[in-house]
């Protein structure tokens, strides 16, 4: 894309630089490879909906006819983590579910993004309870937290747009690069 196309062969005289730029405007443009890749990524997010609870129902509304996530290029819902690049964690993650979601996340290919939808996925919500993981970020790194119990579909769309912006700007993601799983993934016993 960054190369300038050959001028048409029929021209006898070599055009000036200015002329050449004018000519190429109609069929080529210049950019950076990172930018064009980011543009493609941003507009074709393939979400893996991990709906476990109430938020899962609200996520159906996000996909549904009124709010329609397809407008953001993210309608290709993949239930296989290997085909998805955006994990939407929608709903409470329990201790029993933690090993499962860790494995799902690990199976996703890079680059991957995680959106934590709702209070439970973000922090355990109002379930400060013996079987509820206090936030999915205890087992996998999260890029965007969407508050609400459950969040409105507008809020989820906003979260997706934040991720799109993140991709577009090629933002560094230190929370992900420096993320440490802590005791949770090492399989240690219960917290005292």
């Amino acid at each position: 894309m960054s190369e300038i196309a050959q001028p048409a062969a029929s021209r006898s005289a070599i055009p000036s630089d200015r002329e050449m730029v004018e000519q190429t405007r109609s069929f080529a443009f210049t950019t950076q490879i990172d930018k064009i890749v980011a543009w493609g990524r941003k507009n074709s997010l393939w979400p893996m909906p991990y709906g476990t609870a109430c938020c899962g129902i609200e996520m159906m509304s996000v996909m549904g006819p009124k709010y329609d996530l397809a407008r953001f290029g993210a309608e290709v819902v993949r239930f296989s983590p290997r085909q998805a690049d955006l994990l939407i964690v929608a709903g409470t993650i329990t201790e029993k579910m933690a090993p499962v979601i860790t494995r799902i996340y690990e199976q996703m290919l890079e680059p991957k993004y995680v959106l934590s939808m709702g209070a439970c996925a973000s922090s355990g919500g109002f379930y400060r309870a013996y079987h509820v993981l206090q936030g999915v970020d205890k087992v996998i790194p999260v890029d965007v937290y969407v508050p609400g119990c459950p969040p409105t579909p507008e809020a989820v769309l906003d979260g997706v747009m934040v991720i799109q912006k993140m991709i577009e700007d090629n933002n560094p993601r230190p929370w992900r690069d420096n993320w440490e799983p802590g005791v949770y993934r090492k399989g240690l016993g219960g917290r005292k």
């Binding site: 201790e95 029993k96 309870a129 013996y130 079987h131 016993g189």
Partner: peptide, 27 residues
């Protein structure tokens, strides 16, 4: 049936604290 297989104790007994979590490492 409900809590995970590595869980110790029985949560609805009155002497089990409501917020004592036990982590599960395997599926």
């Amino acid at each position: 049936i409900l809590v995970h297989q590595e869980f110790e104790g029985h949560p609805l007994r009155k002497d089990y604290p409501a917020d004592r979590q036990q982590h599960c490492s395997t599926a």
